[in-house]
Structure formats: C-alpha cells, structure tokens
Amino acid sequence: MSQDNRRLHWAKTSRLTYWVLAIWFLFGYVFPFFAKDLDGGSFLGFPLGYYMIVQGSLIVFVLLIVGHNFLQDRIDDECGLSDE
C-alpha cells in the first residue's frame, strides 16, 4: 500500500464527494428556493416546485447516497483499499 496509492485514493474520494455535495445543494437548496418559479411547470399532475419538495428531492437524496456508495466502492477496489 504505497503513499501514492493513498494520495490517489483520497484525491478521487474528495472529487467524488464534491460532486455529491453539488447535487445535494442543487436539490436541497436551489430548487426549493425557486419553488415559486418552478410551480409554473407540472409533473405527474403536481405543480413542479411542490413536487420537488414533497417527493422529488427526497427520491434524489436516496439515489444520490446509493450512487455515491457505488462509485466510492469502485474507487476503494481500484486502489486496493476496500475493507471487505
């Protein structure tokens, strides 16, 4: 387990984490902040802004964690640093 390997692992891990946080910010703050404007649109018969807050963002959060973990597992495996 070389130092370079660890550095690469952390560089990839941090980059992935920043992407995850960017998506989290978009669905947790940007869309809810502009709910009034989004309400012009419609999804499944819901006003879009309302839908995002009561359901859309929540589904994204669940999928975001699952996706994050899938990619993080891959990074760990690639670097030979998985604990399983």
């Binding site: 984490t17 947790g28 809810p32 807050i53 963002s57 994050h68 604990d83």
Partner: peptide
C-alpha cells in the same frame, strides 16, 4: 411551504452523514 423546510432538512441531512461523517467515524 415554510414548514416543508423540515422535510427537506430531515432527509437531505443524510447525504451529509454519508459523504462527510459515517464511513470515517466507523473507520
């Protein structure tokens, strides 16, 4: 609308738990 901030806050927090805290504290 203002109250729904709880719904987003109490679910979105887990993205932070996963990204920043849980795996590292477990290690």
């Amino acid at each position: 609308y203002p109250y729904l901030g709880f719904v987003i806050g109490w679910t979105g927090g887990y993205v932070l738990v996963n990204a920043l805290m849980a795996p590292y504290l477990r290690k």
